[in-house]
Nucleic acid binder design. Sequence first.
DNA 1: GAGAGCCTGGCG
DNA 2: CGCCAGGCTCTC
Length: 280
Amino acid sequence: MPELPEVESVRRCLEPRVRGALITEAQFLDPRSLPGDCPAKARAWVTGKTIEGLNRLGKYLVFHLAGGHYMVVHLRMTGRLYTMDTAESAGLVKLAAVFRLDNGTTLCFQDTRRFGTIYLGSDELFHSIGGLQRLGPDPTASDWDHRAWAAQLQKRRAPVKSLLLNQQLLAGLGNIYADESLFCAGIHPRRPGSSLTDADLRRLASCIRSILLDAIEHEGTTIRDFRNGYNQTGSFQGRLQVYRRTDQPCRHCGKPVEKLKLAGRSSHFCPACQKELPPW
DNA sequence: GAGAGCCTGGCG
DNA sequence: CGCCAGGCTCTC
């Protein structure tokens, strides 16, 4: 569910409400969200620690805790992380974890499909979490070296859509924004990375950046499950051009949007605006 | 590369 | 009932 803009929206909501706060009480209600840790041990570990800051690395949220400790959260498909006033939080059901803070805030972690994960530890976490240690560059960073990224893609024969989903090459795109970026750049999702010209990749890099930044401004896309750090929906769903618009007219040329399966995921594209023809 | 698996719930 | 879903990992 959450891709870079959704995770960033969560981070921006939460950061001012958790920074500087002490965790006075924690409950881990679903052991599956704690790979390698047990709930009792995790509870004792986080209780009494102060949250010094909240960063984002790709789709990971990183809580910086006093003493060089970290709590890293990945929301996967249906995870929600939001705050509410502790007074309002009584009787909440189906939470995977709850944290009470000394500033009167309660931080809730909810996850219908239970793929989401919470990792606790020190510096070694960044090596032990497989997806975190080899994370590619962040396309929303002002110093993103898109030319180096483009050169990597041109070395691969895999479909460009699969390459966009590979977090080792670029951190933050998921199925929605990969499809939207390819439409914006006029590139068919099945084109091999090695077939992309420098001009294609300059266009694609520019589309990725502008779409992600625009989606952050709109607090992300809510198809069904996504909620920001205030437990509210985003609004970028109204601006989608192809994602989940199969058989509906392309907003640019009117031809019906098509769908194909790539890397086990649906890919939505306009057959006229995103041609897959020789010379590829 | 592709496919299965991890889970739950909504939809046709 | 079967299919599908915003992510990621692991096996063939």
